[in-house]
């Protein structure tokens, strides 16, 4: 079974706001596969550009909303791909990241990539349902 996880608030529907042909998340086989999480306002969908740290706070807030609406949570993350705009900010990412995954952090890979709209960070995650 493949279930679509709907956006828990309007701003997290990137298809509606930006035309991206994607669902916010898909639940299948006991896992939740999230689309790339970006620092957008959860109510309005407006882009919340800032420092890597401020963007990461917005993203984790959005991810918490999305996962909890699907009956999961940040504590149930299995795998995280953290894309950052420049690997020089790796240490900055680590400082903010650890605040959200205190208990048995998920497997993680970090790499530098070009992120849409010039954002500094994007999280691509899989969680246990």
């Amino acid at each position: 079974m493949r279930d679509v996880v709907a956006a828990p608030s309007s701003g997290l529907d990137l298809r509606q706001h930006y035309g991206h042909h994607q669902s916010p998340a898909i639940r299948a086989g006991g896992l939740i596969f999230c689309s790339g999480m970006l620092p957008v306002d959860s109510e309005t969908g407006e882009r919340r550009h800032g420092t890597l740290t401020s963007e990461a706070h917005v993203i984790f807030g959005n991810l918490k909303l999305l996962l909890e609406s699907a009956g999961s949570s940040l504590d149930r993350l299995v795998q995280v791909h953290a894309l950052i705009y420049d690997s020089i900010e790796y240490d900055v990412l680590n400082r903010v990241y650890r605040q959200y995954v205190a208990n048995g952090p998920p497997a993680r890979t970090v790499w530098a990539a070009q992120i849409e709209a010039g954002f500094k960070v994007e999280l691509d995650v899989i969680a246990a349902a």
């Binding site: 596969f33 689309s35 790339g36 990539a113 849409e116 691509d124």
Partner: peptide, 10 residues
């Protein structure tokens, strides 16, 4: 509805 997706430049 489509699958979940992540797009990045590399």
């Amino acid at each position: 509805p489509p699958p979940a997706r992540t797009v990045c430049g590399a």
